[in-house]
């Protein structure tokens, strides 16, 4: 479930050929998709006579469904030298591997999302570090609640309980400290020195 924003118009324009087939993915639109901006872009390209066809659909990361959906656009795709895809990176890669000989242009950048937000993105993040620290921190994740992802305690940058990077963000370790005090588990702070293991990934 990724959030995207459209790249600068000039960046997209500089990559397009003379004939373009356009694919918009609304799959994760409930979280957000730059719908209006994308529609405006399509309108402009159409007005410029560049568009051989377009489809607005969802979940283009699913190659089987995408194939079925693109069947009726075979001629329009054939006639295009570029396929413009507004989606997250998975969608662009899926389209690119379906049309290996065509230039596929990514219309969007994702918002940086370092970790998993869950099936209902809300206020927690799991960085999927592979070595859960929550037992030592009262259930507040030090990797995502601390700008520096520190695992051994607060840095000196905390001011008024806020993070040095973003004064609008509560210091993660301040929260952890409070939580541990609240649940009577301040002893967790005496755990052995933590050193992160960056080799937990299942495939690299």
């Amino acid at each position: 479930m990724l959030i995207t924003e459209l790249k600068a118009k000039e960046t997209i324009a500089s990559q397009l050929g003379s004939k373009v087939f356009v694919i918009f993915c609304h799959g994760c639109k409930e979280i957000r998709f730059p719908e209006k901006e994308a529609d405006d872009l399509l309108e402009e390209l159409t007005a410029a006579g560049k568009v051989t066809g377009s489809i607005t659909t969802d979940y283009i990361c699913d190659p089987d469904q995408l194939k079925l959906r693109l069947e009726k656009f075979a001629a329009a795709i054939e006639g295009a030298d570029t396929i413009l895809v507004a989606s997250c990176g998975v969608g662009v890669q899926t389209v690119a591997s379906m049309f290996e000989s065509k230039k596929v242009v990514a219309a969007c950048d994702t918002y940086a999302l370092p970790g998993f937000q869950g099936v209902t993105p809300l206020e927690h993040d799991c960085k999927q570090c592979g070595e859960c620290y929550l037992n030592l921190t009262g259930g507040i994740c030090p990797l995502t609640a601390c700008s520096k992802s520190l695992v051994n305690g607060q840095c000196g940058g905390c001011k008024d309980g806020k993070c040095e990077v973003d004064p609008g963000m509560e210091c993660g370790w301040e929260r952890i400290q409070k939580r541990l005090a609240q649940i009577g588990r301040l002893d967790a702070l005496k755990a052995p020195i933590q050193i992160r293991n960056y080799a937990t990934d299942v495939n690299i």
């Binding site: 051994n152 305690g153 607060q154 000196g156 905390c158 210091c171 370790w173 400290q177 702070l189 020195i193």
Partner: peptide, 20 residues
């Protein structure tokens, strides 16, 4: 940081530094 407004967290961290 002795005058931090998070002095408890600072002391906890100091203790860990001593441990380390």
């Amino acid at each position: 940081s002795p005058c931090s407004d998070s002095v408890d967290a600072q002391l906890a961290k100091m203790e860990r530094k001593v441990m380390a």
